[in-house]
Design a protein around this nucleic acid. Sequence first.
DNA 1: TACCAGGTCCTCG
DNA 2: CGAGGACATGGT
Length: 207
Amino acid sequence: MEVNKIYNKLLNEFGEQGWWPIKGKYSPENSYPKNNKQRFEICTGAILTQNTSWKNVEKAIENLRRNKLFTKQAIKKINAKKLAKIIKSSGYHNQKAKKLKEFAEFNKEVNRENLLQIWGIGKETADSILCYAYSQPVFVVDAYTLRIFSRLGFQGNYDSTQELIMNNLDPKYYNEFHALLVKLGKDYCKKKPLCRECCLRDICKFF
DNA sequence: TACCAGGTCCTCG
DNA sequence: CGAGGACATGGT
């Protein structure tokens, strides 16, 4: 599987996407957090967007901002029921309120092993936090990644797919590659794919 | 209306 | 391990 080739085809087709809407919209230059508050906002977003469209998360983020809840201290202080109401639009709000509070209690060094011990933080969320909030060279695998690579012909799980990509792509492209895969997954490689118009059709087993 | 969305936890075999 | 269900709202 030629990961570089896939990356280049996607970049050529869609252009740079940017991978995190720190100031409300996606662009490569504002995807880097500049302070701890923005880092915490990314971590919060990474949890809220679990199995949920970003559109639903946006309102929750706005509510959190309005209520000045982008610090660990504030999340620790508010009770779970109130917090759930504030993030209601993001879905699974009771669980996610608990997850945010669990994360707020986290006080160890930020690394994958420690993040994975937090209730509510799985591999993708841990990797998102490391990659997007802490600029570490980690590729974030998600449902789109797995679907796209499986159709291309690589049948893998989270770990093997992540390994494939990290072994075959320059780390500086990890976050943009992920953004491009999301773009492809949303617009072309959907549940019901639009293979005829897909820029990867000439190298895809599924087509 | 029914299906889907940038997952994770828990249970069971 | 991996499959299957629970968790929930909003858009199309």
